[in-house]
């Protein structure tokens, strides 16, 4: 979808959600949630070309596919967790939203841990080499 369609879509969804919220609060919130999901899907569809370009660039620069895959996985997890968190906030469940946020951070740590570990191993090897 192009830029103007997305702008019009967001305006229409906001007006529809606001209008329906006056009568049926839950259905109005679901309109907003569906609009969010559709918007993010459109963004993913637009940015998939960028991601394949990034992979090609990394191959040119000698970055290993595992490293790039880790970064992409972290970005995707952050994306999903942001969506879930904003959904919970929209529904008025701030406690659940903060739990989702914490879960997302821990999941990101789990994803990034192998990279941190390999960096630490490299540093330790370097230190051992320079000392010994």
């Amino acid at each position: 979808m192009d830029l103007y369609s997305l702008i019009g879509f967001s305006a229409v969804a906001a007006i529809a959600g606001f209008t329906v919220k006056q009568f049926e609060k839950r259905i109005g919130t679901l309109i907003t949630a569906g609009a969010c999901a559709f918007m993010l899907t459109a963004l993913i569809g637009a940015s998939s070309g960028v991601i394949s370009d990034l992979k090609a660039l990394g191959e040119m620069g000698g970055v290993s596919p595992e490293t790039l895959g880790t970064v992409l996985k972290a970005v995707g997890t952050a994306y999903l967790m942001h969506f879930a968190r904003s959904l919970c906030t929209d529904l008025g469940e701030t406690g659940l939203a903060s739990a989702v946020e914490l879960t997302g951070r821990v999941l990101l740590l789990v994803i990034a841990l192998p990279a941190i570990r390999s960096t630490a191993e490299t540093v330790i090897k370097l230190v051992a080499y320079s000392v010994g």
Binding site: V12, A13, A16, I27, I31
Partner: peptide, 15 residues
């Protein structure tokens, strides 16, 4: 055939 029609559908159902 995009998200706008489903938004209108949901709004109609709500009203």
């Amino acid at each position: 055939n995009n998200g706008v029609d489903i938004i209108f559908k949901i709004a109609g159902i709500g009203i």
